[in-house]
Design a protein around this nucleic acid. Structure first.
Lengths: 242, 242
DNA sequence: TTGTCGTCGACTGCCTACAGCATACATTCT
DNA sequence: AGAATGTATGCTGTAGGCAGTCGACGACAA
């Protein structure tokens, strides 16, 4: 189901400089060392990372493809900073995608997958009781990932991940952890998947992610971030066919 | 995410070389001059386009972000060639996204938008009757684009476009035009949107795109493409949070 | 004070060149 | 003959450098 990481290990990764630069910049963005809206000067990054500008440039291009940074031709790269509106739309789409994942997962539930889910759920609940926020967040993330992978639709999984990334949860930590109620919803979800109740599973997931969305929006309303002037992105519209 | 093209027109486009190279390569891919699975040698492209390798490289990186080409570190870029499985999954996701678009469009229908839809629909039907396949395909594309835009969710529109692009319809032209029945479905869809029938609109769109999916798959089953060895994509799994 | 112009600094975009692999072929050994 | 190894070639990855361009700041005029 999930690309088996085991076999991938066999492949010799020609771990290019560009890739490692990409990872490091990404890390800096995630931990918040590079703030949303910040201008990423190629020379600075190159110097700090001890490489030339070229790998940095290419890493930035790749990051833009994943929605982490925005490219303004002639101006350089800026850390992507989703507006409230965009975050709202992203979360709406996420709800849609994850609900479908839950539906597909329930369509042909797998015994081992289910038991994995239960393990994760138990760990998450334990972490929640122990007030270990980090562990709870990790388990939560793990669980959602497991469900989308169970859908069997890799495209769906990819898009979900992409969409979730672009929300930038880390800037509103409050929303990442809604406590015990969240885990009860998870448990109910697993039950529905195990029972093969497509509609129920989808509905639970939908409401669950909708809760998260509300949490996020409220959290963001309380901690308003100054919205930097929207970078001029030059996207060309492509027709939809069919 | 999709910049409004109207205001963009005013902005002086610092049309970089990389961007024009990107457009030209994209065109070559679309018209089929560069075939799926083909190895894109940077030097060749650079020579043919009369530029250096650098802009070509960067254009390829950007194209990889949009799913047009696959990058194999140390090997270069290859025109993306979706497997039947991937195309199937893409179309499944497209169904999901477009059905939601139709739902949202029906949630707050706009008079002028509706009349635009009808115009497009009439043109499409006329083209269909006149056996003008190109015009019919264009109208079809236009209509779907209009509906996703009516959803008011830019992220949704963007993702839909992205997903649709990755299917590569042009390699199975048969599936792009299902004739008159398709336009009757469109007409019904517009009625539902105008009436504000969310569920009906979503359902019509779902079945409509599902038809297209079936068409595509059958068409591809009849014209099997030799599947090139899957390039080793190095996707790093990212956690989903929330 | 406000609007306009010109200069300056900084950064990006692009080019050329070199180094490092990967693949394919030729060669040698068993 | 078959397998393993050496070699050659083509391509990618990276470095460094130059020119063009954008934005900011300050000077000058209304």
């Amino acid at each position: 189901m999930l690309a088996n990481q085991g076999s991938t290990a066999k492949i010799v990764r020609p771990t290019t400089l560009r890739e490692s630069v990409l990872e490091r910049i990404l890390e800096l963005i995630i931990i918040g060392s590079l703030k949303p809206g910040q201008h990423l000067v190629e020379n600075e990054l190159a110097d700090n990372l001890g490489v030339s500008r070229q790998p940095v440039r290419e890493a930035l291009q790749l990051l833009s493809g994943e929605g982490w940074v925005d490219l303004r031709p002639g101006h350089g790269a800026y850390v992507h900073s989703p507006t409230v509106e965009e975050a709202d739309q992203l979360l709406a789409v996420r709800t849609l995608l994850e609900a479908e994942s839950a539906r597909l997962a329930a369509r042909n539930p797998d015994k081992t997958d289910i038991s994995d889910l239960r393990d994760i759920c138990n760990r998450g609940l334990a972490a929640c009781v122990a007030d270990d926020v980090d562990a709870a967040v990790a388990a939560n993330s793990e669980l959602h990932t497991a469900v989308v992978n169970m859908s069997g639709n890799r495209v769906l999984a990819d898009l979900t991940s992409q969409v979730a990334r672009r929300v930038r949860w880390y800037h509103t930590p409050v929303a990442r952890h809604r406590g015990r109620a969240s885990w009860e919803e998870h448990a109910a979800l697993i039950d529905a998947i195990e029972a093969g109740d497509e509609d129920v599973a989808a509905d639970i997931m939908r409401r669950h992610t909708e809760h998260t969305r509300q949490s996020y929006l409220e959290s963001r309303a309380q901690n308003p971030v100054e919205e930097p002037p929207a970078p001029i992105r030059r996207r060309r519209p492509r027709a939809v066919s069919g």
